[in-house]
């Protein structure tokens, strides 16, 4: 039995009368690429939001390893080893690509205010370390040429990759990707698939990915959660889901 790294137990998130997610239950094994699919408004991003502490779930429990995450502040959760990207890219557009990455090193930069004002050797070493680490990650994602460009000035596809690079700077064990293939053509999706598998390998990650692009989901996800109207519709391997009548109904409409 493999180790469970993220588990949700009966998690509900209500906004007034709207049940964004309702009684969601699942576990993710360490090292997996775990897909979350479902129609618009099914509650996919809400799952990422409750995991990362943006919302406090109305009820239920969320565990990372054995740590209960409910009610922790987002930065504490990120610090524990979960990082994410956003459906609508949220880079710091006025900052350079390199600074975007440096910002994400915040929680594990080990110097204090005194080091800053005294220009201590620890300050210099740490600044040098995070710059080198950032550049290493940029190199890995073929983004090093762009590091002094303003993030907001980059084309869409590159912004997506910078966002992944920035998330990697948080040194996560689990990476949450929110629609990384949105707006990409088939060739780009192929590249992205390779990239996702490559970073899992390189950084020893578990990856949760929300996606509409079936090619991405079917090719690289080892397990998939299907949501509909905030409820869990099915969970299983891509092959199992292909023949699941409930999933087909949700996606293709009622079949006779």
């Amino acid at each position: 039995m493999a180790e469970k790294i993220v588990s949700l137990k009966n998690v509900c998130m209500y906004f007034g009368g709207i049940r964004a997610i309702d009684d969601i239950d699942f576990e993710v094994e360490k090292g997996r690429v775990f897909g979350i699919i479902g129609p618009n408004g099914a509650g996919k991003t809400t799952i990422f939001n409750v995991i990362t502490g943006v919302y406090i779930p109305t009820s239920g429990e969320i565990y990372f390893h054995d740590n209960l995450l409910n009610k922790l502040m987002p930065h504490t959760i990120i610090d524990k080893g979960i990082a994410r990207t956003f459906q609508n890219i949220r880079l710091f557009e006025d900052q350079t690509v390199l600074d975007n990455l440096k910002i994400a090193h915040f929680s594990h930069t080990r110097y204090g205010l005194a080091d800053v004002f005294l220009n201590s050797s620890r300050y210099k070493e740490e600044e040098q370390r995070i710059e080198e680490e950032s550049i290493k990650i940029l190199n890995f994602l073929n983004l090093a040429d762009l590091m002094n460009k303003k993030a907001g000035a980059l084309p869409y596809g590159e912004q997506r990759r910078v966002e992944i690079a920035r998330a990697l700077c948080c040194k996560p064990e689990v990476l949450l990707l929110d629609e990384p293939a949105a707006g990409m053509n088939p060739a780009e999706i192929n590249d992205l698939n390779q990239l996702i598998l490559k970073i899992r390998e390189q950084f020893n990650l578990t990856i949760l990915v929300i996606e509409h692009q079936m090619r991405l989901v079917m090719e690289i996800c080892e397990e998939i959660l299907v949501l509909n109207f905030g409820k869990k519709l099915a969970i299983g391997t891509p092959n199992e889901l292909k023949n699941n009548p409930a999933v087909l109904e949700a996606y293709l409409g009622k079949t006779n």
């Binding site: 990362t52 502040m73 930065h75 949220r90 710091f92 900052q95 440096k102 594990h108």
Partner: peptide
């Protein structure tokens, strides 16, 4: 010295997008 440190970078990140800063580990 302050604005060039991680504190200064984080301040400017918060200015641009507080939620995103918090979600890349900045203690807002």
């Amino acid at each position: 010295r302050f604005v060039r440190s991680k504190y200064g970078r984080s301040m400017q990140a918060i200015r641009e997008d507080e939620t995103a800063s918090n979600l890349v580990s900045v203690d807002v």
